[in-house]
């Protein structure tokens, strides 16, 4: 039992050779996999994945019935997911929080994902009063236009979004209108090298020389 030799993972396989030097990109999924492609950004949401609990299934139906302007999004596993247009984001957020049969008052996570042509901002919201409930809201910020990607801020609905939005602004360059204090948060104030979490970011700063070559 103590000799963990047989418990060590079988990482000796040949498959590792295929790891390659490729930079991860938004490319269509392997033909064999069942999941929807990420790059499509929920456009092919005809088949929604199964939800783990009946409570989430009820929540999905309630949201779909009450808020018909939301488009179901198929990429998310385990939670009902919806896509909203930028113009109706704030209104939808209010309804999600305040409607008693939805009641998602706890914003757990706010993330930005760069899909090259647009940036998706993803809201993971849950309910403290009804622990079984949770849903995902996605909104796209287009990169076209002179102002760059922008979205309305949801800090009026979920105050905790404040720093999360600052982080998305800092690392992905999405401006949030009506944000109380939109400044850089993680990067230094004078940073001018672009937006690190974007796909086309390349670090132009002087690097410490690496003696051992990088793959």
């Amino acid at each position: 039992m103590a000799g963990g030799k047989d418990a060590t993972p079988d990482a000796t396989g040949r498959g590792a050779a295929a790891g390659g030097n490729s930079v991860p990109m938004a490319r269509p999924a392997d033909s064999g996999s069942a999941g929807p492609t990420v790059a499509a950004g929920g456009q092919d949401a005809a088949v929604a994945p199964e939800l783990p609990t009946p409570e989430l299934e009820t929540l999905r139906q309630v949201i779909a019935r009450r808020l018909s302007h939301l488009e179901p999004d198929g990429a998310t596993v385990g939670l009902p997911a919806f896509r909203v247009v930028r113009e109706r984001l704030l209104e939808t957020a209010r309804q999600w929080r305040d409607a008693p049969e939805i009641g998602l008052e706890y914003l757990s996570c706010l993330s930005g994902v760069d899909y090259r042509d647009h940036i998706d901002v993803v809201y993971h919201v849950f309910s403290v009063a009804h622990p079984g409930r949770g849903a995902v809201l996605k909104v796209a910020a287009q990169k076209t236009g002179t102002a760059g990607p922008w979205l309305p801020s949801v800090t009026a609905v979920w105050p905790g979004a404040e720093w999360h939005e600052r982080e998305v602004f800092d690392l992905l360059g999405v401006r949030f209108t009506d944000h109380p204090d939109l400044r850089r948060i993680l990067l230094p104030e004078g940073f001018s090298g672009g937006y690190p979490l974007r796909r086309d970011f390349s670090d132009e700063r002087v690097q410490r020389e690496r003696k051992v070559r990088q793959r």
Partner: peptide, 18 residues
């Protein structure tokens, strides 16, 4: 056992999970 057999070059299916 404490470890499932996993492909060394793991490729999860496309999708999102939180």
């Amino acid at each position: 056992p404490v470890l499932a057999r996993v492909r060394p070059n793991l490729r999860p299916r496309a999708g999102e999970y939180y």
